[in-house]
Amino acid sequence: MTDRWKLLRSILIVAAAVALIALPFVAAMLGSTYAITLATRLLIYAMVATGLNLILGYGGLVSFGHAAYFGLGGYTVAILAFHLGEGTSILGFPGTNEALVAWPLAMVVSGLAALVFGALSLRTSGVYFIMITLAFAQMTYYVFVALKYYGGDDGLSLARRNTLGGARIVDAQTFYFVCLALLALVIGVVQRMTVSRFGMVLSGARADERRMMAIGYSPYRYRLTAFVIAGMTAGLGGALWANLARFVSPDMMAWTKSGDFLAMAILGGLTSIAGPVIGAAAFILIESTLSGLTEYWQVIFGPIVVAVALFAPRGLWGMLAGKQER
């Protein structure tokens, strides 16, 4: 890594951080609530993509069912709020609208699902892994479609946003900063992980599974741990999404959503911390620009995705970094 690239990279990261912090103020000055909602979506997607990148980029495991954990996180928040509204209990506990309870619980629910699905899926590899993760996500999707009590196909609406430590998060700007802080936290944790022994074993197993086993590591446990962490991250993202949209539905778990998450991670560039964030940003900007231009935006968006897969396998960040890294 040359010094010039190091400097450039630092400048880019600082610039991005400044832009993300300044964005809501600029949006408020322009009186644009659309921009701030769009930016919040970006943060949430970036969080999910960052978690996914841990297994996809570092672990080399193509999970095609990541939307399931995203949806489960969202539904956890919505179901707790639903029971609070109805005055009923769920599994003996009352409902709640408190983020400090609901969000960690969303992560636990998604994490547990990832533990079970991951434990089974990781017995396979390659294409089988792709398809079995997809199948588990579809299974979760259909369970929620069939759950008429929680709205089935129509989903659930949330009357209001969660309270955070008792305080209400009323305006879009505050919620944006909550999301930004959590994204920073997630990026920090994932970054620490990738440079730790855990991350090294995970990357090592991707590069050469046999060799890792020969020096005494069992890749399965490391992969499962990474899978669960990615699931929990998606769960947190889903919880935030439920608060942003104030609505959850099985569509959050649709397999096209899993495809979107994959596309974001690859678009930005795998095996880098900045990649998923850039990917999510690019994805949302392209999608919202094109869908503003024409109703048939997929006709343009599809070929862009194809082109990235064919010609830019290292993603936007990878292209920028050129031969500087690795």
Partner: peptide, 22 residues
């Protein structure tokens, strides 16, 4: 890698759905 096959053919689905709608 399978990853890129998944991504490229996923892009194709979007394209064909949009094209038929158009």
């Amino acid at each position: 890698d399978h990853l890129y096959q998944v991504l490229a053919t996923f892009g194709l689905i979007l394209f064909f759905n949009g094209l038929v709608a158009l």
